[in-house]
């Protein structure tokens, strides 16, 4: 199972990086979303998968899965949502003022 997830993480990163390297702002944002997913899965997988019940003590189970990565991921999800929401709106603003969807077209001033 972990092997499969590791491969999936690799694929998510591959597609994410490929998108981030493209010209269109939208695709760059989508790429970062994929990268975020990859990171979250990586965090979750590293503690081992399915080693017990969900970390709810009412379950009265023998073993529970590691709750700490889940707390970390939860924090990360919220933060990455905040950041990507901001960037989406920023991209939207960029569209409206620059009128284009091409990061290569909006290069910095070159001497």
């Amino acid at each position: 199972m972990e092997l499969l997830i590791a491969l999936a993480i690799g694929v998510l990163f591959t597609v994410g990086v490929y998108l981030v390297l493209s010209k269109s702002l939208l695709r760059i944002l989508l790429g970062t979303t994929l990268l975020t997913h990859g990171v979250h899965l990586l965090l979750l997988t590293m503690a081992g998968l399915k080693t017990g019940a969900a970390p709810l003590l009412g379950e009265k189970a023998e073993t529970y899965v590691d709750p700490l990565p889940q707390a970390l991921i939860l924090t990360s999800i919220v933060i990455s949502f905040g950041v990507s929401a901001f960037f989406i709106v920023l991209a939207y603003r960029a569209y409206r003022s620059a009128g284009m969807d091409d990061v290569e077209g909006s290069k910095g001033e070159r001497r």
């Binding site: 092997l3 590791a6 690799g10 990163f13 591959t14 990586l42």
Partner: peptide, 11 residues
């Protein structure tokens, strides 16, 4: 390359 690296890191 990044994908492969990340897979290896994960493993």
């Amino acid at each position: 390359g990044v994908g492969v690296t990340m897979t290896l890191i994960a493993l």
